[in-house]
Each structure stands twice: as C-alpha cells, then as structure tokens.
C-alpha cells in the first residue's frame, strides 16, 4: 500500500490539504473563538485596574485621515504597538510617564490594521496628544526642520490641502487615546 504513496496524485492532494488545514485552522479560526478580548472593545472605569477609558469608533474625518495614513504608506516605517518590553513603554511614554502596553481590545475597530513590522521612525501607538497641529504642519512640510537627521519624506501635498491635513492630524491625535494614560490630562491639540 505504501508503495503507492509517492505515485498517487489524488492521495497527495488530500494529504497536503489535511496537513495544511490542521495548522491553518488552529492558528487562524480558533484563536478569536478562544480569546474574546480580541473582539471586545476596551472599556474600564475602575482606576484600580489600570488606565481608564473607552474605545470608540473613529468619526468620518478621522477615518479620512486614516485612509491617508494607509495611502501614503506611513505604516511601512511606523509601528503602532507598545510591546511588552520595558524599553517600549519608556519610548512610548512621555514627560516621565511610562505608556501602558498595547492590548488587543484597543484595536477592535481597526481595518486595515496598522501594527506594522518595521520601525524606521518612532512607534506611534501613543502619539495622540503629544504634538499640536502647528507642530505637525511644520513637521509634514519638512521633518528635518524639527528633527535634524530624520529620514522621513516631506509631504507638501498634504500640508497644502487643508482638508487632508486636518483629517490626518485628527486621526493621529486619536492614537493610543482610548486608554487615558496621561495623569494630568495634558494632551496637546
């Protein structure tokens, strides 16, 4: 019988698909069924359990900004995840306050997800509220005016289009804000 194993194309197709689907189903379909936190929007009103806040879907302007973020490929160089590494919580932190780590419940409404795989520029998972609109305007026009040594491309066609620029900034200001992590609520606008 086994002499046939490398002679039967039909047997091959069946075996190859079974092998594939064991791992395929267990790692893609099963996890969201087991881990409800993947689909449960973040909501916490008890300061004892960590940062409070509530995840709300983006409004129309913020969604437009997000589409621009996708279109321009910002996500190729900026990740949106504060990982469970001490250095990440320090780097995403600000003015001496460490950032909370990113959890699945903060991203429930994201599509396409923007976690990213490469960090050429800094992580943006908690960038919301760190810089004001004027800072972003100058920075998008030429990043090197504010941070000498930056390799970020300039985006004059966005700055010159108030509609797009405001939408993009509106989106950026939402990043990481569902967790109310600043102690004095000292967010920039």
């Amino acid at each position: 019988m086994l002499g046939k194993t490398d002679k039967s194309a039909v047997g091959f197709v069946v075996a190859a698909l079974i092998f594939f689907f064991i791992g395929g189903l267990l790692t893609t379909v099963v996890p969201p069924l087991v881990d409800k936190s993947w689909s449960q929007p973040f909501e916490n009103h008890d300061p004892a359990k960590g940062p409070t806040g509530k995840l709300v879907p983006l409004n129309a302007q913020q969604l437009q900004g997000r589409a621009i973020y996708v279109r321009e490929g910002c996500w190729y160089c900026h990740t949106q995840q504060t990982r469970t590494l001490l250095a990440d919580t320090k780097r995403s932190g600000w003015k001496g306050v460490d950032s909370p780590i990113s959890t699945p419940d903060e991203f429930v409404y994201d599509s396409p997800h923007m976690f990213g795989t490469k960090r050429t520029g800094p992580d943006l998972s908690r960038v919301g509220g760190k810089y004001d609109t004027q800072w972003h305007r100058t920075h998008f026009r030429n990043p090197r005016d504010l941070t000498p040594g930056s390799v970020m491309p300039p985006f004059p066609w966005i700055v010159d289009n108030p509609d797009e620029f405001n939408a993009l900034v509106a989106y950026i200001q939402t990043l990481g804000r569902c967790k109310d992590w600043r102690p004095d609520n000292d967010y920039e606008r």
Binding site: G24, T27, T28, P31, P32, W38, S39, P104, F107, V108, Y109, D110, S111, P112, H113, F115
Partner: peptide, 11 residues
C-alpha cells in the same frame, strides 16, 4: 478587524 485581522494578515 484589529488583532484578528493582523493574525490572518501575518499568516
């Protein structure tokens, strides 16, 4: 959406 989607994307 979200993490579920990212999991499929990285698969």
């Amino acid at each position: 959406t979200g993490v579920n989607q990212a999991n499929l994307n990285w698969m």
